[in-house]
Amino acid sequence: MRNSKPILLVEDDSVDAMTVQRAFKDLKVTNPLAHSINGEEALAYLKDESNKKPCVILLDLNMPKMNGTEFLKVVKADDALKKIPVVVLTTSQEERDVVESFNLCVAGYIVKPVDYKKFVEAIRTIDLYWTLSELPKEKVGDQNVEHETYIASRG
């Protein structure tokens, strides 16, 4: 991506999470990858103001505690979080999951390819697209903007 913000991966399967990490490395995607293992943990990450807001969220659907759809409902009802694009990354090809996700305004729904090379290509396409796309800048009042303003006003 064009920015240095983290990408948040919400994924309970540790093998899948490692595969995403490996694909990032192979593609030289330099954004840090933050990893939460379920929706509840991801929400805690997003609400913790000491964490930088991610530029994009990669979201698995089937997870314990709080699944992807439940997570999406909370995020899209939250004014501070709803503008972060969420891309579903799942093994589910169920039409119901696709429709439900788009009803909750996801910005893409990618079925995880089983083959590693295809998986890397999928991540490459996601990275290309979200590098091309503009992303919402954090509003004034968000931590790092405030910090920059503070430095500027001192100068």
Binding site: K76, G108, S133
Partner: peptide, 15 residues
């Protein structure tokens, strides 16, 4: 425009 668009859940914003 970028913020308004993403607040309305666009699936990409390309210049």
């Amino acid at each position: 425009d970028v913020i308004d668009s993403f607040d309305l859940s666009v699936a990409g914003y390309v210049v």
